[in-house]
Amino acid sequence: MAERLITDLGGLPAGAIPREEYHMVFWEKQMIATFNLLWDKGIFNLDEFRRMVESIDAELYKTSNFYRRRLDGMIDLLVEKGLLDPAELEARTQRILQEGTRDHVP
C-alpha cells in the first residue's frame, strides 16, 4: 500500500467550503505570469512543480494558501535546478522588506 501524498485530498473529511470571492492583488498576478513564463520557456514543467508542492511539510501544507504554494514551489524548483541561490534570495527579500517600498524593484 503506497503512502498518500499530502495533496491527495479526494474523499477526506473537511468542513465548510469558503465562498467569499478572492481578488488577486497585483503581485500575485505578476507572480502567476512569471510562473507561466518560466514554464513557457521550458525552465520547469507542471509535474515538477506539483512534485515540489507535494514535498512541502505536511503541517505547512494544511495552513498554506494557493498563492504562497505557487511562489514557494517555484522558488524551491529554481533552487533545485541551481538557478537561484536561496541565501541571496532571502537577503534580497529582507532588503526589500526593510525599505518597505516597491519603487526601485524592476
Partner: peptide
C-alpha cells in the same frame, strides 16, 4: 491498481 510507487503520481488514493 494500487502501485507502490514513490514520488509524484496522478492516481489518487480514493480510486485505487
Amino acid at each position: 491498481l494500487d502501485l507502490d510507487k514513490p514520488g509524484h503520481v496522478r492516481t489518487p488514493m480514493y480510486v485505487r
